[in-house]
Computed example of a mutant assay.
Amino acid sequence: MRDRWCEGPVPPDPVLRLPTHLVAEFLRLARRTSEELYPAEELRRPHVVTLAWLADQGPMSQRQVSERLRVGPADLVGVIDTLERLALVERRRDPADRRRYSLHLTDEGRRALRERRVRGERLNDTLLAGLTEPERDTLRSLLLKALAHHDGRFASAADQGPVDPPTE
């Protein structure tokens, strides 16, 4: 078996029996492939996931975004700063509590999210090119089931079964 990043066959290795190792290797492949497809991309996964949460849930505080994404508040500040600098998100005073700010997705943020979803589909198609559609559905279902066991945020998606591709 050969891939485009290493020379020669991949030696048989008992570690290849560990799904966690395979997931880690797949994530490394995904990162490399994403950087090849979109080399100058400033927005990375945390940015896009934040945009998606705001698009789905509407304006919310940084604390709420931090809790929903399970990202430390200090780490989220840099993500929000980047999104704000790119005019994808606006911080506005929360009218219900003037001490807080709420995050609002801008029209440019919505456009950027639609574009990133198209790019995400292309990345998935590239990474999963060796799988049939039913195999992709099975992979997705198994990953969601494993995640839902540990994290309730994934439970409803795991119960839904296969999903249609985004239509935005």
Rank of each mutant, 00 (worst) to 15 (best):
Met1Ala: 11
Arg2Asp: 06
Arg4Tyr: 05
Cys6Trp: 14
Pro9Phe: 12
Pro9Gln: 08
Val10Asp: 04
Asp13Tyr: 10
Pro14Cys: 09
Val15Lys: 12
Leu16Ser: 12
Pro19Gly: 05
Thr20Ala: 14
Leu22Ser: 09
Val23Ala: 13
Glu25Ala: 15
Glu25Val: 13
Leu29Asn: 07
Leu29Tyr: 12
Leu29Met: 11
Arg31His: 12
Ser34Trp: 08
Glu35Tyr: 02
Pro39Val: 02
Pro39His: 06
Pro39Leu: 01
Glu42Pro: 00
Leu43Phe: 02
Leu43Arg: 02
Arg44Leu: 06
Arg45Lys: 10
His47Val: 02
His47Ile: 00
Val49Thr: 02
Leu54Ile: 09
Asp56His: 15
Gly58Asn: 12
Gly58Lys: 10
Gly58Leu: 09
Met60Cys: 06
Met60Thr: 04
Ser61Asp: 06
Arg63Lys: 15
Gln64Glu: 15
Val65Glu: 02
Val65Pro: 01
Glu67Tyr: 05
Glu67Asp: 14
Leu69His: 00
Arg70Trp: 02
Pro73Ile: 09
Pro73Gly: 08
Val79Glu: 03
Ile80Pro: 02
Glu84Arg: 12
Arg85Leu: 08
Leu88Gln: 03
Leu88Pro: 03
Val89Ser: 01
Val89Asn: 04
Val89Arg: 00
Glu90Val: 02
Glu90Ser: 08
Glu90Ala: 07
Arg93Ile: 10
Asp94Trp: 03
Pro95Asp: 00
Pro95Trp: 05
Arg98Trp: 07
Arg99Ala: 10
Tyr101Thr: 10
Ser102Glu: 06
Ser102Asp: 01
His104Cys: 07
Thr106Leu: 07
Asp107Ile: 08
Gly109Met: 04
Gly109Cys: 02
Gly109Val: 02
Arg114Leu: 11
Arg114His: 13
Arg114Ser: 10
Arg114Tyr: 11
Arg114Gly: 05
Glu115Gln: 14
Arg116His: 13
Arg116Ala: 12
Gly120His: 11
Thr126Arg: 15
Leu127Ser: 06
Leu127Phe: 08
Leu128Lys: 02
Leu128Pro: 03
Leu128Ala: 06
Leu131Ser: 01
Leu131Phe: 15
Thr132Asp: 07
Glu133Tyr: 00
Glu135Phe: 03
Thr138Leu: 15
Leu139Gly: 03
Ser141Trp: 03
Leu142Met: 13
Leu142Thr: 07
Leu144Ile: 08
Leu147Thr: 01
Leu147Arg: 07
Ala148Trp: 10
His149Arg: 12
Gly152Met: 04
Arg153Ser: 13
Arg153Ile: 03
Ala155Lys: 08
Ala155Asn: 03
Ala158Cys: 07
Ala158Tyr: 11
Val163Ser: 15
Asp164Lys: 12
Asp164Leu: 14
Pro166Leu: 14
Pro166Trp: 13
Thr167Asn: 12
Glu168Gly: 15
